[in-house]
Simulated assay, not measured.
Amino acid sequence: MSNQIILPRVLQVGENASLEIPSILDSLGCTRPLIITDKMMVELGYAKQVQSCLKDHQINSEVFDDTVPEPTVSSIQAGVDTVRNGNYDSIIALGGGSPIDSAKAISILGKFGGEMRDYKFPRIVNEQGLPIIAVPTTAGTGTEVTRFTIITDETNDEKMLCVGVGFMPIAALVDYKLTLSLPARITADTGIDALTHAMEAYVSKKASPYSDSQAIAAMKLIGPNLRRVFHDGSDHKAREAMMLGSTLAGIAFSNASVALVHGMSRPIGAAFHVPHGLSNAMLLPAVTEFSIPSAEEKYADCARAIGVATQADSDDVANQKLITELRALNDELQVPTPEQFGIDRQQFFDLMPTMAEQALASGSPNNNPIVPTAEQIIDIYQQLW
C-alpha cells in the first residue's frame, strides 16, 4: 500500500526565513499580495517588517488585520470581501494558527464564492484558491504545512473541519525569530498543541512510515524544549527546536490526521471559547490514558521520544512514565481545568452529550487507537472537571 504525501511547494526553515517572501513571490509570478494577519502582529511591528521587506523589492502590499482568535464564518467575511474587491494575486498569511486558518478560508471563498459550510468535511477541497505564503509566528498549530482549516459556525457553535489540497499553502517560511516575543501562556498552549499533533499522528490509524518519522522527530525536539521556552522565552536554541518540532508535527498530522484529543477539543473551544491549544492540553493526559491499552507499543515510543523513558524501560513502565509526564507538564505549564478556566459547571455537564455528538461527527475519533462511544467521550469530559 502506498501513501500520498502532501506538502507545501516551498518549505524555508531557519533564522530569517521570513525575509525570503519577495523571492517566493517572484518565483510564483505574483506582484500584488494581501497580507492577512491580526492586530497583534501589526502592534508588534511584524506586518510592517514584511511590508518593508517587500517594498525593498518594489512590491506594494496591503494589510488586512481583522482576523480573530478561533476564526468564525462572520470574522472571515470581511477578508473575503477584501479579496473580491481588490486585485490581489496572492496572500501572505502572517501570525499564529488563527490568521493562517483564516487566510486559507479567505483564499478559497474569495476566489470561488459560496459559504464556508459548502466546503466542510466530508467534502474534499482540491480547488486552488489564491496562492498562500504562510509565515507562522507561533510554534504550535503547524497549519503552515497542513491541508486543513477550522472555522466556527457561530449559529450552532460548530467547529467545521475543512480538508483538501486547496487549503495547503504554496510556501511555508518557518522563522523561529518571530516567536521570541510570545508570552509564556501562548508559548505553553501552542507548544502542547504541537506535542498533541505529533502524538496523535503517531498513534493514528492513518499513520504511515513517513508520518511516523516526522512525528518521532517532532517529539524529540518538543520534549526537551517545551519547559525551557515556557520559563525563558529568549532561549534561541529552544525556540528554534520548538519551531521546527511544530512544523514537523504539522507535516505528520496533515498526512496521518489527528485523533480523539482533537475531536473532543473542538466542541470545548466552540462552546466555551477556550483557545485550541489549551483545550488540547486539558484533554491530552485523560485521552492518552484511555487509548494506551490498544497502542501500548506506540505510546511507549512516544515516551521514549519525548525523553521521559529509556529503551531499557518496558512498554508498560514507559507508558506509566508518559501519563505522569503529561500531568506534570500541565501542572508546570499552568494548564487550567475547565473550572479554573471559568466554565460554568452546569453548562459544561449539560452540553456534554452535544459535544460528544460533535466530536464523533468530526471523524477524528475514528483515527484513535480505541474508537470511543458517545458514553465514553462523556466520561472523559467528566474526568476533566
Rank of each mutant, 00 (worst) to 15 (best):
L7R: 12
R9Y: 12
L11P: 06
L11V: 06
V13G: 06
G14Y: 03
G14C: 03
N16L: 04
N16C: 07
S18W: 04
L19S: 11
I21E: 01
P22K: 00
S23H: 01
S23I: 00
L25A: 00
L25R: 00
L25F: 02
L25C: 00
D26K: 01
D26S: 03
D26C: 01
S27I: 07
L28H: 02
G29Y: 01
G29W: 01
G29N: 01
G29A: 00
C30L: 14
T31L: 05
T31R: 13
T31S: 14
R32P: 07
P33R: 01
L34P: 09
I35E: 00
I36N: 08
M40S: 14
M40E: 12
M41G: 05
M41E: 10
V42P: 06
E43W: 03
L44T: 02
G45K: 12
Y46V: 14
A47L: 08
K48T: 11
Q49I: 04
V50C: 02
V50A: 02
V50S: 03
Q51M: 15
Q51T: 12
K55L: 12
D56T: 14
Q58P: 06
Q58F: 15
Q58R: 10
I59G: 07
N60Y: 07
N60P: 05
S61M: 05
S61Q: 05
E62G: 02
V63W: 04
F64N: 08
D65P: 03
D66V: 01
D66P: 00
T67S: 09
V68A: 13
E70Q: 15
E70M: 05
S75I: 09
S75R: 04
S75L: 06
Q77P: 04
A78M: 08
A78N: 15
G79D: 13
V80L: 06
D81G: 08
T82D: 10
T82P: 11
V83M: 13
R84S: 13
R84W: 11
G86E: 12
D89W: 09
I91P: 07
I92D: 00
A93F: 07
A93S: 07
A93E: 03
A93V: 06
L94F: 08
G95L: 14
G95Q: 13
G95V: 09
G95E: 14
G97Y: 14
S98K: 04
S102Q: 12
A103F: 08
A103K: 05
A105W: 05
I106H: 06
G110S: 11
K111A: 13
K111P: 14
K111G: 13
G114R: 03
M116S: 11
M116C: 10
M116D: 03
M116W: 07
Y119V: 02
K120N: 01
F121R: 14
P122I: 07
P122V: 08
P122L: 09
P122C: 05
P122N: 06
R123P: 13
R123T: 15
R123L: 03
V125C: 10
